[in-house]
Design a protein around this nucleic acid. Structure first.
Length: 295
DNA sequence: CCGCTGCCCTGCAGGC
DNA sequence: TGCCTGCAGGGCAGCG
């Protein structure tokens, strides 16, 4: 569920409330939520005790907490990696708050302050303890090394992304969702960016002009920045910040989830197409189906 | 190498 | 009321 803006809102909350604190205990309440930590739940929990959370970082939809306070040789070289999947949340909660229905992992701290809780209804998300590696001068967890920088990073190179996109032979929405091309974009912001750039989702990347590709990626940056300013997009309480509060960018969506409602630009009813076992929303008039669609 | 299908889960809305 | 189907913001293995 959460895309870049929502994950960034969570990262900021974690940075404000958790960074600088030292872990005193970890409870793994559902092993599936740490399945990517190969040595297992026990190892995950015990290795974190006594470690200080020194920074909260993000690339695309992944976020991680860098670790200090450990054995010298691993210090600053390890991190707790989190992916929220479709329904994951990180919440800062007082000790006495009752366990959430889908509470999966709890972190307690030696200052006796609020806990950090990983709550995840569908368990597509998860946590793991990972080593940092250097990719083009940026330290990222090893499982994140294969994805591209996201549009809000200093190292993001728009022209390089444009060039790579135009070399693909696929539909433009598939390309937008491909985290190895540009990271952080999901179904909502892909549809919103395509609407802003007046491109149909099945338009082949191979015949995109350079200005069209630039316009599309530029629109993706703009819509995600606007969403971040609004605190993210929340349709229900599955997406909330670390204090349990919803964002309000859903009110600014032009097409996503708006089937049958008027396009804000031309008034034509927004259509919904099935695509990749999901939905694609677009304006039939602003985003006409191309002659040679690439589904 | 690349692209695509199916699957991993739970809960909810809507049709019957 | 309940049962069934389809759908939900993501990603990855495995196949061709």
């Amino acid at each position: 569920m959460p895309e870049l803006p929502e994950v960034e809102v969570v990262r900021r909350g974690v940075a404000a409330h958790v960074v600088g604190r030292t872990v005193s205990g970890v409870d793994v309440l559902h092993p599936r939520s740490v399945r990517r930590h190969v040595p297992g739940p026990e190892d995950f929990a015990t290795r974190l005790v006594g470690r200080c959370l020194t920074a909260a970082r993000r690339r695309g939809k992944y976020m991680w907490l860098e670790l200090g306070g450990g054995p010298e040789e691993v210090d600053a070289g390890e991190a707790v990696l989190a992916h929220l999947g479709m329904s994951g949340q990180l919440l800062v909660q007082p000790d006495e708050a009752p366990d959430e229905t889908h509470l999966r992992v709890r972190f307690r701290f030696d200052d006796g302050g609020p806990q950090l809780r990983f709550v995840d209804q569908r368990t597509f998300g998860g946590l793991s303890l990972t080593e940092l590696v250097s990719v083009d001068g940026v330290a990222v967890p090893e499982p994140v090394a294969h994805i591209a920088p996201d549009p809000l990073e200093p190292v993001f190179d728009l022209e390089a992304a444009v060039a790579r996109m135009r070399k693909r032979r696929t539909g433009v929405k598939r390309a937008l969702l491909d985290q190895t091309l540009v990271s952080g974009i999901g179904n909502i912001y892909a549809d919103e960016a395509l609407w802003r750039a007046k491109l149909h989702w099945a338009r082949p990347t191979a015949n995109l002009t350079r200005p069209q590709a630039r316009s599309l990626l530029g629109a993706a940056v703009e819509v995600m920045q606007a969403a971040l300013t609004a605190g993210g997009t929340s349709f229900d309480d599955l997406y909330v910040n670390v204090n349990g509060e919803s964002g309000y960018f859903d009110r600014s969506l032009a097409v996503y989830g708006q089937a049958g409602l008027p396009c804000p630009r031309c008034g034509t009813a927004v259509r919904r197409d099935a695509f990749m076992n999901r939905s694609s929303y677009s304006c039939p008039r602003c985003q006409p189906t191309p002659r040679n669609p690439h589904y």
